Computed example of a mutant assay.
Amino acid sequence: MTAEAPALICSAKGCRGAAAHALLWNNPSLHTEERRKVWLACDEHREHLEEFLTLRGFLRETVDAHAIPEGAG
């Protein structure tokens, strides 16, 4: 018997949609340059979440939700 992977749910407030994208970010005043935090986004909320992080200088890259680098989180 194999364990089922947990569902990837969008990080947008109030959204329970399936995440298709992983937004990798860090706050340079709190995190080291190589540290990556992750927000998940459905197609509908990707642009909004990317804009939020970009305006603050936090967004580093966006990848497929199933391609989150090891150690990010």
Score class of each variant (00 low, 15 high):
H21W: 15
A22E: 14
A19C: 08
R56H: 12
H48Q: 13
A41K: 07
P6R: 02
G17Q: 11
S29D: 10
V63F: 08
H21A: 10
L40W: 03
H31I: 01
A5C: 00
R16P: 02
H21C: 07
T2F: 03
R60K: 15
E70I: 02
V63E: 11
N27W: 00
G17W: 00
R35T: 13
A5R: 00
H66D: 14
E44P: 00
A22S: 14
P6Y: 01
S11H: 02
H48V: 09
G14K: 01
H21R: 11
A5K: 01
E44V: 12
R60V: 15
T2L: 05
D64G: 06
S29Q: 08
I68N: 05
N26Y: 06
A41T: 13
A65E: 13
P28H: 02
L30S: 09
G14E: 10
N26W: 02
A65G: 14
D64E: 14
T54V: 03
L59F: 08
W39T: 09
T32L: 06
S29K: 02
A67I: 00
L24C: 11
T32H: 07
L8F: 04
D64W: 02
A72Q: 04
W25H: 15
A3D: 08
E61P: 01
I9Y: 01
C42N: 07
C42P: 06
A18E: 15
R16Y: 09
T32Q: 10
V38Q: 09
R60D: 13
V38T: 15
N27P: 00
L40H: 09
H48I: 07
C15F: 09
R36S: 09
H21I: 06
I68D: 08
G73T: 05
W39G: 05
E50V: 04
H45A: 09
I68L: 03
A65M: 07
H48A: 14
G73S: 09
I9N: 03
E47K: 13
C42I: 06
T32R: 06
L8N: 11
L24Y: 13
A7L: 07
T2Y: 03
I68F: 02
G14A: 08
M1R: 00
A19E: 12
A3F: 00
T54R: 10
K37E: 15
T2G: 04
I9V: 15
G57D: 05
R16C: 08
E44Y: 07
A72H: 05
I68H: 03
A12G: 08
L23M: 13
P28Y: 01
L59P: 08
A20M: 10
I68R: 01
